[in-house]
């Protein structure tokens, strides 16, 4: 507002009020620059806030239990009054197995669908499937959890003849479905970014179209596809609610058909009843810290791939 007045003044009386108006204008400019700068720093502040709080609240329990016992202990029994145990190896392994399983199922299907959408599909077909994939990406995770709970879990129970279908297998399938859309869209973008000349050269040398796509285009887009995989790993390892609904939530060592707890579901499952200040609750924060470290490693990988992608 000040500034408008200042501009008017400048036009009318160039001599007297010029310095005053300019001062007001400069003050506003400086103020706005300051405000924007604060906004810019807020993102950094948030990251620091999260890191610091996770470390502060995650360390006490690790110190109390002992780092080795905490990370490599195979028994988690936080509700046991007389002999509680806080070993999170089952959660770590479950998270790794679950994520690996989801990647093994999700990546091939996602990659092939991406090749289909980017290269093979006729325009109208792609125009139908692409929004469908976007819709898949937008569906809330609890909805996936619900369908998994009602369809997948009973199916596993009857097919494998086990007492309960809540299992690592159910979680893997749900995770695979959930990471599919991001793998498809990121790989498709990477495939499309490959220069047309590469493909033309390959075709001119006598390769068929499919040979070209798989042996020329895909290798040329490999860092983008790697980024898609890493992104999928990040999604899968961080997902909580959907697998909370299908994994059964018992702290077993992972096996396909047994009920398991992930790092995320261990936190989500016990958070609501762990008493504030208790070792149980602090241990949950420690699990959060471990999960955070996992995610940070994945982020570093992702950054490396994306950077290589930009340069290449």
């Amino acid at each position: 507002m000040n500034e408008k007045v200042g501009c008017g003044n400048m036009n009318e009386t160039m001599t007297v009020s010029k310095t005053g108006a300019r001062k007001a204008k400069e003050a506003v400019e400086g103020l706005m620059k300051g405000i924007f700068m604060v906004c810019g720093f807020i993102a950094i502040a948030f990251v620091l806030l999260i890191t610091i709080y996770l470390i502060i609240s995650g360390l006490p329990a690790i110190r109390e239990v002992g780092l080795i016992d905490f990370l490599f202990g195979t028994r988690w029994d936080s509700a046991n009054q007389t002999d509680p145990a806080y070993g999170i190896l089952p959660f770590i392994l479950t998270s790794i197995y679950g994520t690996a399983g989801a990647i093994v199922i999700g990546v091939p299907i996602g990659f092939l669908t991406a090749v289909f959408l980017a290269k093979v599909a006729p325009q109208p077909v792609a125009a139908v499937i692409r929004p469908a994939v976007d819709l898949l990406a937008g569906i809330p995770s609890v909805v996936y959890g619900l369908v998994g709970m009602m369809v997948l879990v009973p199916w596993i129970r009857t097919t494998f003849d086990v007492p309960a279908g809540d299992s690592l297998l159910a979680a893997i399938v749900v995770l695979a479905v959930m990471i599919l859309p991001s793998i498809i869209s990121v790989s498709e973008t990477a495939l499309k970014a490959v220069p047309k000349e590469y493909e033309e050269a390959s075709l001119a040398l006598g390769a068929t179209e499919l040979e070209t796509y798989f042996r020329v285009t895909a290798p040329a887009a490999k860092s983008g596809i790697a980024a898609a995989v890493v992104l999928g790993v990040g999604r899968a390892i961080g997902e909580a609610m959907a697998i909370l609904m299908v994994a059964g939530n018992v702290a077993n060592m992972p096996s396909l058909l047994s009920s398991v707890k992930f790092l995320t579901t261990a936190i989500a499952g016990e958070m609501s009843y762990a008493a504030v200040g208790s070792l149980q609750r602090n241990a949950l924060y420690s699990i959060g810290l471990v999960l955070f470290l996992f995610i940070m490693c994945i982020n570093v990988f992702l950054n490396v791939f994306l950077k290589r992608n930009k340069e290449g």
């Binding site: 993102a43 948030f46 990251v47 806030l49 999260i50 709080y53 996770l54 609240s57 990040g234 390892i237 961080g238 997902e239 909580a240 995320t264 936190i267 989500a268 958070m271 949950l284 924060y285 959060g288 999960l291 955070f292 995610i295 994945i298 982020n299 992702l302």
Partner: peptide, 12 residues
């Protein structure tokens, strides 16, 4: 920030 899973946001 965009890579941090929601359960960690919940904790913090």
């Amino acid at each position: 920030l965009s890579g941090i899973p929601s359960i960690l946001y919940a904790l913090v």
